[in-house]
């Protein structure tokens, strides 16, 4: 049975006369890995911030994990994880301190915190770095750590905003392993990226152009639709018509 965890209808965000997100409507099913693509400035981050309850939409409706995006932002927050484009764990706290702080804020019990942080550290192979300040870790590890912290409380949906930006191919591969693991546990993954090989890993992708969703389907269906051999070509085909850039 399909369960819809994200449902938006004509969702828009305006900043003055600028329409950052222009009436987007789509649905995401439980357990899906949903790729959210688009050129810089297409409105991806703004859309994602609205879905996370960090930004109030100008119009349209949306329900995240069944909760209304206007009225139930706090319930939404309990059911989602979020990893922003900019690294946002505390650099002056250690790996372990960051984990237990966020776990505590999400209301995990002490025994759960202990158990989960041990599992997380073993999974990431960070045993030797537990007492290190997060600021001292290399970027790849920071990204993996912040993803793991974002799914620590087992949210229904995790939002990832360009999680692999500036990370080497090996680490990116490892990062996607983490995403698959989360997806297998039933966590819906909503991810933005600029890497077309990563787009291929997604179950379905949407491509945003100038604040609108121009295409939405599985990677293979999109390639057929645009008579393209690769996702790269599909993206070029759509993004070429974009009027705004960065």
């Amino acid at each position: 049975m399909k369960e819809t965890v994200i449902k938006t209808d004509q969702l828009s965000k305006r900043f003055g006369s600028f329409i950052a997100v222009d009436a987007i409507s789509f649905e995401v099913q439980k357990g899906e890995i949903f790729g959210f693509l688009g050129a810089n400035g297409a409105g991806k981050t703004t859309a994602m911030r609205m879905l996370c309850g960090l930004s109030v939409p100008s119009s349209g409706t949306a329900a995240i994990a069944g909760f209304d995006i206007y009225k139930k932002t706090e319930e939404i927050k309990r059911n989602i994880g979020y990893m922003s484009q900019k690294f946002s764990l505390y650099e002056d706290l250690t790996v372990l301190e960051n984990i237990s702080f966020f776990a505590g804020i999400y209301g995990l019990s002490n025994s759960a915190i202990k158990e989960k942080s041990e599992a997380l550290i073993t999974r990431l192979g960070l045993q030797k770095e537990v007492k290190k300040l997060v600021g001292e870790l290399p970027l790849g590890w920071k990204q993996k750590l912040s993803f793991s912290v974002a799914v620590l409380h087992e949210p229904k949906i995790v939002f990832l905003d360009e999680p692999t930006g500036g990370v080497d191919p090996v680490t990116r591969r490892q990062f996607w392993d983490l995403i698959y693991e989360a997806s297998e546990k039933g966590i819906t993954v909503f991810v933005t990226t600029h890497y077309m090989d990563e787009a291929e890993y997604c179950d379905r992708i949407s491509i945003m152009v100038d604040g609108r969703i121009s295409a939405l389907d599985s990677p293979s269906a999109l390639k057929t639709q645009f008579k393209a051999a690769t996702m790269d070509e599909v993206f070029y085909e759509l993004a070429r018509g974009a009027k705004r850039g960065d």
């Binding site: 996370c52 309850g53 960090l54 994880g81 979020y82 922003s84 946002s88 650099e91």
Partner: peptide, 13 residues
């Protein structure tokens, strides 16, 4: 400034 408030704001705190 450090962006850490985003991570706080997205929690049910």
């Amino acid at each position: 400034e450090f962006g850490t408030i985003e991570q706080i704001n997205v929690t049910p705190i």
